[in-house]
Every structure is written in C-alpha cells, then in structure tokens.
Amino acid sequence: MTHASDVPVGPDAPARPAGPLLVLAAMPEEAAAITALMADAEPLAVPLAGVAAVRGALGGQDTAVVTTGIGVAASTAAATWAILSLRPRAAVAAGSCGGLAADVEVGTLIVGDAFTWSIADATAFGYAPGQVPGGPERHVAEAAIADLAEASARAVDEGAGVRRGLMLAGDAFVTAPLAAPMRERFPEALSADMETTASARTAEALGVPFAALRAVSDLCGPAAGQQFHLELDEVARTSALAVQELAARLARG
C-alpha cells in the first residue's frame, strides 16, 4: 500500500521530505487528549491570536498538534500557518463532530475521505449543494491517507463502530431543525462540524495529504430512543487513540 509520505505536494512536485504529522483540533479539550499521549511535547510559537501548538512524538512519529479555534475562518488561518511553517507529511482533523446520518451513533469514529460545505448554496447557478462557485463539488482525500486513517480507526475501535465517507462543515451548529433538510440535501453525509472542510480545502490547496478522524459527540436530530450525547473528553479520547495509531503507522511506513 502507498503511504501518505509518498503523495506529492502538488501536481508537478516530487514527494517531499518527511515532516511531522499535523493534527488539527478546534478546542483545547480535543487537543489535550492527543498531547496527553505524546512524548517530549514542547510548545511552538504561533503568530496567531487564539491558536496554540505543541510538537513532540506521538506513536514514534514526529507530530505537531495545533489548536485552531472554532469555525471556518479560524481553522483556515491556523492550518495555513501550520502547513507553511512546518511542512507536514500529512494532516489530520481530530476531535469531535455531530452525527448526521440517521444510523450513526454517539462514539462512532468518522473517517473523513470527502468534504463539502454544509450551508453553501449556489444551486440557482447550477452548482451542486455545498459547492462553492469556482471550487470542486467535493474535496476528496488521497486514497493512501484515507485508507491508513480507516485502518487506524478500526484498529482502536472500542465497539462504537467506524464509518468512512462524507463530512460536512460550515459556520452553523447543526441543531434538529437544520438536520432534516441537511440530510435531504446530503443523503450520504455522515457528520457535521465547523472546521473540517476548511482544513481539507487548505491542505488540498497547499498539497498536503489530508484525512479526518473525529468521533461523534452529539446526534443532529436524534431519533426516539437513541443516546444523543457523550462528554467531550470521552469522544476526544476516542479520536486521540485513532490519531495515535495513525501516527504509529506513519512512523513504521
């Protein structure tokens, strides 16, 4: 299998020297679950207000964890700085997300391999739901990094399950009234959050392999009888273990 480090940084560029794995987490609690698993973690100076970063070893792999802040703008700015400064071999979005698909349960690990915007709507001009004019219908992960992320998630699955597919992101928290129309527009979507598509687009633009490993903390419009919420520290740990496994596999490969 081809590994993420074998993926070129751009359409005409040779494979880059291996840099760190870049882990992008929106909230401090999500980042803390990952840094707790690291060795020799040291803070990095960041020229962006509200953004924090540490670098150390995770699963034997040189890794930088960046706490981006919440939302599309925050995640774009932080990911751009991190990629240009650190030249990572791959990037992964970590932490929590909302479960959108009707059959997704809390605690499920979502492996993102395709990404689009949850509330973008230029359909009046012939674009697909979620597609921004001038952009692709979907931002799609390189198969090598997505396969590695899925294998990592399945290796640490503690019974809540693993799903791989489309993730949505946008600057709206998906409450029950938004969930039903969103499911109609994106019947294949598994989850929603406020950062992942922005991070995916940034990584794609800068030629860095990208995937997501986020665990479901809440259900967007749960059905009767479904457990609908898990504490953030619990799902952050689930995501962190999968990211640690991904880092270890990158270190071996």
Rank of each mutant, 00 (worst) to 15 (best):
P28S: 02
P28H: 06
E29W: 05
E29Q: 14
E30I: 12
A31Y: 06
A32Y: 02
A33K: 10
I34L: 15
I34A: 10
T35D: 10
A36Q: 13
L37F: 10
L37Y: 03
L37V: 07
L37N: 08
M38W: 09
A39R: 13
D40C: 04
D40W: 00
A41N: 04
A41E: 11
E42N: 08
E42M: 05
E42K: 13
P43W: 11
P43C: 13
L44T: 06
A45W: 05
A45L: 13
A45I: 09
V46L: 07
P47T: 08
L48W: 00
L48T: 01
A49N: 14
A49L: 14
A49E: 15
G50P: 03
G50R: 08
V51Y: 03
A52N: 13
A52E: 11
A52P: 03
A53N: 02
A53M: 14
A53F: 14
A53S: 14
V54K: 13
V54F: 06
R55K: 11
R55A: 15
G56K: 03
G56N: 10
L58R: 11
G59D: 10
G60C: 13
G60M: 03
Q61C: 15
Q61G: 00
D62Q: 14
D62Y: 03
D62F: 08
D62R: 08
T63E: 07
T63L: 04
A64I: 01
A64C: 15
V65I: 12
V65G: 05
V66K: 06
T67S: 11
T68I: 07
T68R: 13
G69Q: 08
G69K: 01
I70F: 02
I70R: 02
I70L: 15
I70Y: 02
G71L: 04
G71D: 05
A73G: 05
A73W: 00
A73K: 11
A73E: 10
A74I: 02
A74K: 07
S75Q: 02
S75A: 15
T76C: 06
T76H: 10
A77L: 15
A77G: 02
A77K: 05
A78E: 02
A78W: 10
A79K: 03
A79G: 15
T80F: 07
A82H: 01
A82S: 08
A82D: 01
I83N: 01
L84H: 07
S85N: 08
S85C: 06
L86T: 02
L86Y: 07
L86W: 10
L86E: 10
R87K: 11
P88T: 09
P88C: 05
R89L: 14
R89P: 00
V92Q: 04
A93P: 00
A93H: 00
G95M: 13
G95W: 12
G95R: 08
S96R: 11
S96T: 12
S96V: 12
C97K: 09
C97M: 07
C97A: 14
G98T: 08
G99A: 12
G99L: 03
A101I: 04
A102P: 02
A102I: 07
D103V: 09
D103N: 15
D103A: 15
E105W: 06
E105L: 08
E105I: 04
V106D: 05
V106H: 05
V106M: 04
V106E: 04
